[in-house]
Design a protein around this nucleic acid. Structure first.
Length: 301
DNA sequence: TGCCCCCTGCAG
DNA sequence: CTGCAGGGGGCA
């Protein structure tokens, strides 16, 4: 589900309300969702390990790397949360009404909590509750040692953050040079090259740069790499400013949807008109992922 | 470098 | 019923 802007929006929402709180109670509703280091919980024993390692800890930080949420806990432990396709992390304050003034946003947007998709529940010292929902059960919560975080996969191998100074045209140039034959879209989805781009923003940034997603990385001109770098940064920032894209499952930490879906130009718009040239937007499959592009603005060669 | 898989649920 | 879905790991 969420890519960099969505995960970042969730982290920004959670950070101010979670830091300093103690985890009073942990409920694991789906055992396979929780891991302890590399060991996936398969039954009561490992689930119990996870619970005992999280319960009673104090939350010291909430941050993001690529699409991974990192919740720092006391005693040199961290909780890694990956939302994969359909994960949600929703904080409900003690009054049960979310934190946004003027109504009952959490109930309106996501319905009753816990829901059928709720996998883990953390009850916090301020009386608030953090719900981890995940319809498709691909996401996970993993307890790890904080001091070894940078040595752990997948964190160890993540490439530069695209909204940091480390992401330069040179990064793109080197990656295209090293992997000449890979399709440029697949290169963008490789988290070891750039950390945090997913299917939506790969399609959108390639459209903005007027590059056909099936082009080989090695075929990009210098001007195209400059444009692609610019478009990646621009589309991620735009999405952040709109609170992320909610095509279906994504909601922020308050259970509220983002608005970026109204500003996407090609993603999931096959059959619609290209906003630049009026051609019909097409859909194909690249690397097993649905891929949307304008055949006129993004010619095959 | 391509499948296939993990799952549930929605639209057509 | 089939196809498809913001991810990514494993396997030939």
């Amino acid at each position: 589900m969420p890519e960099l802007p969505e995960v970042e929006t969730i982290v920004r929402g959670l950070e101010p309300v979670l830091v300093g709180q103690r985890v009073e109670e942990v409920k694991v509703l789906l055992a396979k969702t929780v891991w302890v280091d590399a060991v996936r919980a398969t039954g009561m024993v490992d689930t119990g390990n996870f619970i005992s390692l999280v319960k009673g800890k104090t939350i010291s930080s909430v941050s993001r790397r690529a699409k991974m949420i990192i919740v720092g806990l006391s005693d040199d432990t961290s909780l890694l949360v990956h939302l994969k396709m359909t994960g949600q992390l929703i904080y409900v304050a003690a009054d049960g009404q979310g934190r946004v003034a003027g109504g009952h946003p959490t109930q309106d947007m996501v319905g009753e909590l816990p829901s059928k998709s709720t996998r883990v529940i953390l009850r916090l010292s301020d009386g608030g509750v953090l719900y981890f929902n995940d319809q498709r059960q691909f996401g996970y919560m993993k307890i790890v040692t904080t001091s070894s975080l940078t040595e752990l996969e997948p964190l160890r191998s993540y490439g530069p953050e695209p909204l940091s100074d480390e992401f330069t045209v040179e990064v793109l140039r080197m990656a295209c040079q090293r992997r000449k034959k890979i399709k440029i879209k697949q290169l963008l989805l490789d988290q070891t090259v750039i950390a945090g781009i997913g299917n939506i923003y790969a399609d959108e940034s390639l459209f903005g740069a007027k590059i056909y997603p099936g082009r080989s990385a090695g075929s990009l001109t210098e001007q195209e790499m400059v444009a692609l770098h610019r478009e990646i940064v621009a589309v991620l920032k735009l999405s952040l400013s709109h609170g992320g894209t909610s095509s279906e499952h994504y909601v922020n930490a308050d259970g509220i949807k983002g608005n970026m879906q109204d500003y996407l130009l090609v993603y999931r718009r096959a059959g619609e008109v290209c906003p630049v040239c009026g051609s019909e937007i097409e859909r194909t499959v690249i690397g097993g992922r649905g891929t949307h592009y304008c055949p006129h603005c993004q010619p095959v060669s």
